[in-house]
Write a protein that binds this DNA or RNA. Sequence first.
DNA 1: CGTGGCATTGATGTGGCTCAACGATAGTGG
DNA 2: CCACTATCGTTGAGCCACATCAATGCCACG
Lengths: 207, 207
Amino acid sequence: MLNRIGRQRNVAAGQSLIWEGDDSLMVANVIEGVFKLATSTNAGREQIVGIVSQSDFIGRPFGAHSQSTVTALTDARVCVFMRSDFDAFAREHPELEHKLLQRTLAELDHARRWMLLLGQKSATERIASFLLEMSVKFADQSCATSAKAADTFTLPFGRQQVGEILGLTIETVSRQLAQLKADQVIDLPTRREIKILDRPRLVSLAG
Amino acid sequence: MLNRIGRQRNVAAGQSLIWEGDDSLMVANVIEGVFKLATSTNAGREQIVGIVSQSDFIGRPFGAHSQSTVTALTDARVCVFMRSDFDAFAREHPELEHKLLQRTLAELDHARRWMLLLGQKSATERIASFLLEMSVKFADQSCATSAKAADTFTLPFGRQQVGEILGLTIETVSRQLAQLKADQVIDLPTRREIKILDRPRLVSLAG
DNA sequence: CGTGGCATTGATGTGGCTCAACGATAGTGG
DNA sequence: CCACTATCGTTGAGCCACATCAATGCCACG
């Protein structure tokens, strides 16, 4: 079993597991918690290029440099593998490679849809798209009907990070959210909670 | 051999092989020519999410809808496979899946670096990054030292498409190129040719 | 020689960034 | 429990980079 070559590890919110540019030495599976994948320009501007949570895969198998920094947004637990061990194991287990391929293809599709957002969409459209996506990803577990969008959910990040995901500044994010609230499309019970009041409207705003 | 289940096919410049949203019915290998992968908003704005050429892979294996339209930018020749045939073949040939996984991982890395460009970089930085990347991808074959960047090359697309790759308008692209030419960083012998005069400068402009 | 599609260039507008101040919230120590 | 402070979020004013709108120029084609 794969677990024999992996070790569980706890990661505190804010800790980074992997740094951009480093040799890829480890891969991991997320058991619980949420991570961000970020890359930055020489000038220091950051772009979040992925959000990784529950049962997602972290790291870059098969010899390469890591292209992004992986940081825990919440306290998290992961199952870590030495990359070399993992690579060897994967080569001998086509089923695993197949699963990994499926995941990677799905992530590529996702990344490309995100490129459309970053390249073409207005601030309002970006926020609307973002809220809709997060409503699927972070549906509060209370609701037993899993795997479906929820209208109330809690973001695992603050405004700064929302900005980095969407390619916007913190001020623009704040203003757009305030506007959506004023328009009764959403409600913002607390800093990190979102309540969608008018989903069809939000969908149409998403472009 | 894989070729037994594939058929060669010619594609004229401008023709599309696959449409966004369609069921994924075929995959293909590019033998020669260049394709673009594009997605578009409901509003009709297009974003080019990938450029595919010589020996690259086209399509989405393993049951899913195609997320982008694949269109030939030049006359091209491809080797086409029914997706179902390909899937079955791949499942029986781990080596093929492994190669595909490697490619997909590399493309994902690439897509994420592009997200940084689209989310954070200025028009000048985008153009500079773009030119540097294209100088690797489309190095004119004349130069025997293959697989290296060339300082003169020919783009397979016009200004409109450059804009769609970079998330800029055609006018901005034109002005930025004009500026780089005025600054003696590049030369523009014809509409589609680029000559890099001062590569270090271009690198520093790329952010 | 015209005609049509691309590219360039100029003038103007505007969405989102920047800069700055203020307000809210959560954590800390008295 | 409450003041104290650090952090985060909101709000406002002004500006600038890029988009938009509008001519004009440049080839390639019949």
